[in-house]
Nucleic acid binder design. Structure first.
Lengths: 336, 336
DNA sequence: ATGAAAGCGCTAACAT
DNA sequence: ATGTTAGCGCTTTCAT
């Protein structure tokens, strides 16, 4: 039936005996179409299974009812946010487009690249996950989740990283640990900075000194946490407990510990941060500080939709901060 | 500097003192540009932070180096696949676009709608997750993950659902269970059909009769599993064990059991299917049949890339089937 | 080596 | 109520 490729608006128009303009009106529910024409065109659309090309229509109309969620990579953290956003979008008129680069994902400025690539045409607004380079004045409304250090000027959703880190260290201290290491996160992110600050504050409050040789940078990813974990653990004066700035690096730390012949939690206690589902899959199950990740995703989405629908005062920079909580599992234990 | 909106190719052209055609050549690495011009244009691109609009370029070029993964919803199952695809795309030249509808996600035919909306222009190929309506002859190459009942003609990746289901039931039987219920999945999906078939086959092999009142349809989702779970459990002759066709309905079954005052696994054993990370988070942790979901996502992606790069004989319908395995946790126990 | 011009599929004025 | 026309931002012949 169709010569080559997808059915387009002109196909519908020809078959219905009208102009493409009329089909466009029908598709977009514009007024000024006779009932009979409407019915006929809709019938043809149904018959042919026509659906407007997002690329083409967005190019012209600049309103797509699609929101983007831009991530460097689909990993446990970002996909939890995605689940929350997906659930939240159910109550809206929008569709959800999640975008991630390929191999070159370590490059800085991906968030700006993706925003240029998709913004202005394909998506009406975007949620950017852990952006480091943010131009506050984007073409389209943008909400940041867990952004880089310093004020961004962007509406932001995150959780109380400082309080969470304090909670983690207090838990270790209460368990009798005195020699506590920090597997730090990406230093360009505010969350990592605050977790380190919380770590230091809690130690100080407990009357403990920070041994700087016990503070390493794990970069939030398993690959980047391996070497730092070895540095921390492969030495006679190793810590008895480690606070890792996120679950992924905590899990990697546990793996490295086992490779070195250490038992967790008997020889080493490890506490993480995030409470991604993978933390429960870990052996032993990881004690961690939970962030309400799905809720964060959902809040960010609603914030964005409010921005798009002009239900929000754009002059008030929004910062939603959600609470953290201790989740006790089996990777920490009291010092004998 | 920029009057209004994003920087476009004409802005670059003006600033570099060349035509848009030349800029296009530079951006796309075409030959026929003097070195000096090349340098100058690239400099301007860098200065302005220009990035081509995906919508506009795809409209014209029909080759975007973006692949789509189309899902009804971002939930634990699809996001595991997404993680696998994301990892796999790192070794390619492509970028990844995941698309999901909004509220109307229960409608049938979403896969066709999304394919028309994005295919032909925005994406070069697509992975469709649990499609029920598949037109084998799409405009762009398509790979299906866990498709609907019957032959689709599409390259497909799934796991050995039948063997997995048999394994699940054999486990329950070995534990001494004789009265075993089935929380079935979406009957339009081949995977659900095969899991039910495996359930029946394993019972028969064990010399057990299938009590049809113990076979219900949970629809793979928590919302749709609630009522069927009550039907199964809120009766004097309830089963001592339930095999649920996926983890989400297994988890919901456990929740319903607790609401009814039953203890799991003491009063009821439950085994799931999928091994999504959430299954470990469940209380008690769920015994389940694992599918290598991330691997499935990765395989599907590689298959699609091979199709796009013509490294694959298109006349051979591919069906990759991956193995399942029993994961014992705490939701099943031997009958006293 | 560079630019002018046409057109991808669609929407939005503006005619009729 | 419907059709005509002019683009949206880009790529791609085809001239020059």
């Amino acid at each position: 039936m169709e010569h080559s490729g997808r059915v387009k608006m002109s196909d519908v128009a020809r078959r219905a005996g009208v102009s493409v303009a009329t089909v466009s009106k029908v598709v977009n529910g514009r007024y000024g179409v006779a009932q009979a024409t409407l019915d006929r065109v809709q019938q043809v659309i149904a018959d042919l299974g026509y659906e407007a090309s997002l690329g083409a229509s967005s190019l012209r109309s600049h309103r797509t009812h699609v929101v983007g969620i831009l991530v460097a990579e689909f990993e446990p953290f970002s996909t939890e946010l995605l689940k929350g956003a997906s659930e939240a979008i159910g109550s809206t008129e929008y569709e959800l487009l999640a975008y991630s680069g390929g191999g070159r994902r370590t490059d800085v400025g991906w968030e700006r690249r993706y925003l240029s690539r998709l913004g202005g045409t394909l998506i009406d607004g975007a949620i950017i996950v852990t952006p480091t380079v943010v131009d506050a004045h984007s073409v389209i409304p943008v909400v940041a989740i867990d952004p880089h250090t310093g004020p961004t000027g962007l509406p932001t959703v995150d959780s109380d990283n400082f309080a969470g880190a304090v909670m983690a260290v207090e838990h270790l201290v209460a368990l009798g640990h005195r020699r506590i290491g920090l597997m730090g996160g990406r230093p360009d992110l505010e969350s990592a900075r605050l977790r380190e600050a919380g770590f230091r504050a809690a130690l100080q409050a407990a009357g403990l000194e920070v041994d700087e040789s016990l503070v390493v940078n794990g970069g939030f990813r398993p690959e980047t946490a391996t070497q730092p974990a070895r540095e921390l653990l492969d030495r006679p004066d190793r810590p008895t407990a480690i606070f890792a700035a996120n679950d992924l690096s905590a899990i990697r730390t546990i793996e490295v510990a086992r490779e070195l012949g250490l038992r967790v939690p008997d020889d080493l206690s490890v506490i993480g941060f995030d409470n991604v589902p993978e933390s429960a899959l870990c052996e032993p199950p990881l004690t961690t500080i939970s962030q309400p990740l799905r809720d964060i995703g959902a809040r960010a989405l609603h914030l964005l939709i409010d921005l798009l629908d002009d239900k929000h005062d754009k002059d008030v920079p929004t910062h939603l901060q959600l609470p953290t909580a201790l989740v006790e599992r089996s990777s920490c234990r009291a010092l004998a």
